[in-house]
Design a protein around this nucleic acid. Structure first.
Lengths: 251, 251
DNA sequence: CAGTGGTCTAGACCACCAA
DNA sequence: TGGTGGTCTAGACCACTGG
């Protein structure tokens, strides 16, 4: 059963997306929405808070909320799974494992995965494609405790996230992402079919379970021009952080 | 006067940042916090919602909240103003205007700034440095209505955002950011002191007033290795969006 | 000035987690 | 099964916006 506020948020989001409210237009007042949906003002406020967090609407005390944009953020699953994202966006995704081996965690990997250096991890190199073109090179390190489930997967498994969810009951809940630009190395260049030294968009990320247990630490490199990340922020909701240098020190 | 929930959020954030709660540790229950701060449960929930939006804590129904990380997102001002960000992070920022001229808006610029093509805009090229090293090339287009205030600024004005706030009463409230990687062009390479074709981290952004009126559309290019963006997300709060190609079509 | 969103309360019921 | 967070209500007061 979906919560009342979630259904109200969905209805308003649909109206915005379909153009019922233009960008810059005002939303109805909270009292008006409360009457229309027959709920209390608190529930209406929960609903519009969702839209505000998505960056779709903004608000100022004393004035009605305004529409800031018409496109919604993707679901968490779509952001963490290349295959699920591509499918939802209407693209044809492919992928295959190029190399896979067990080894001991390096110092950085251990810090990211909350392990001790030398503890077993599974290192996987995957090449992923969009519309048949190679666009993404993933170098992923899985914590040892999930490694057996990963090794059972097909080499050309389309969605690793989905397979681990269905097969091993693995649920991912939180992620931290670090985005910067790097020059393609020799291996990057060969596999992504670009020249050595050409620009790549790098996204390093760690993903954890609902309990906060790290599952994977990945270095993903996109061919320039293939993918863009976007974020909408405000005085109230400000998820994006800019940092000097390569990466913050490990915890 | 700061709101109660904001002060409670600040106190909890401090405790997390100082290490009073380790990463992975549990937060006190809502009832416990309500008693400790002598507020209702609703107020406590508002406070922890702030921390959740900052990516510091996560929650699951039935279990206590857990600490996910120790570092807080930057303020909106710090994200939009290179100078304010650098100062807050303890770095020495510099910058100067290399070129500045009025012209008519292109089709893309007009769409981004909610103008008609050909309406007057002010185009500015700025080079910004960190610790004396050039790291960022900004190509900014200001809407015509704010151009006079921008033209009154010094060429080596440290913080444009701050100067426009103090001088013209301009308040920025919302932003949308598009992040990808590009190869340095001839001008980029010369000004940032890198080789042509070397990787740059590009952040294009549009910033608007509290009323939703677009102020500036900017193409910012960082030298590779100088800056990293980071984002923490979850099933509930998911601000990051991945898109195919260069940039979504204009609204 | 009336309308609107921002804050806060006190209580209720439920779904879920862990022991 | 008891404690926890998730949802919802009904009402109150305040700060701010806008005509």
């Amino acid at each position: 059963m979906t919560a009342r506020y979630a259904r109200i948020a969905a209805e308003l989001r649909d109206a915005i997306t379909r153009g019922g409210y233009a960008v810059g237009a005002q939303l109805p007042s909270e009292a008006e929405l409360a009457a229309r949906f027959a709920v209390s003002r608190g529930t209406v406020r929960q609903a519009v808070a969702v839209l505000a967090a998505e960056g779709l609407v903004g608000s100022r005390q004393g004035a009605r909320r305004i529409v800031l944009g018409r496109e919604r953020s993707q679901s968490f699953a779509e952001l963490h799974s290349f295959a699920q994202w591509a499918r939802a966006a209407g693209h044809r995704a492919g992928g295959r494992v190029l190399a896979q081996r067990r080894r001991g965690a390096s110092a950085v990997e251990a810090a990211r995965l909350a392990l001790r250096p030398g503890e077993p991890v599974l290192s996987v190199l995957r090449l992923r494609s969009l519309e048949g073109e190679p666009v993404l090179l993933e170098r992923t390190v899985y914590a040892g405790w999930i490694a057996p489930a990963v090794e059972r997967l097909d080499a050309d498994c389309e969605s690793v996230t989905r397979a681990l969810h269905d097969g091993a009951g693995l649920v991912l809940a939180y992620g931290e992402h670090f985005i910067d630009a790097v020059a393609a190395g020799t291996e990057d260049a060969r596999l992504l079919a670009v020249r050595r030294g050409s620009p790549l968009l790098r996204q390093r990320r760690v993903t954890t379970t609902p309990e906060g247990r790290p599952v994977e630490w990945s270095d993903d490199r996109y061919r320039a021009g293939s993918v863009t990340f976007s974020i909408r922020n405000s005085v109230d909701a400000n998820p994006l952080v800019r940092q000097v240098g390569d990466l913050r020190p490990a915890r």
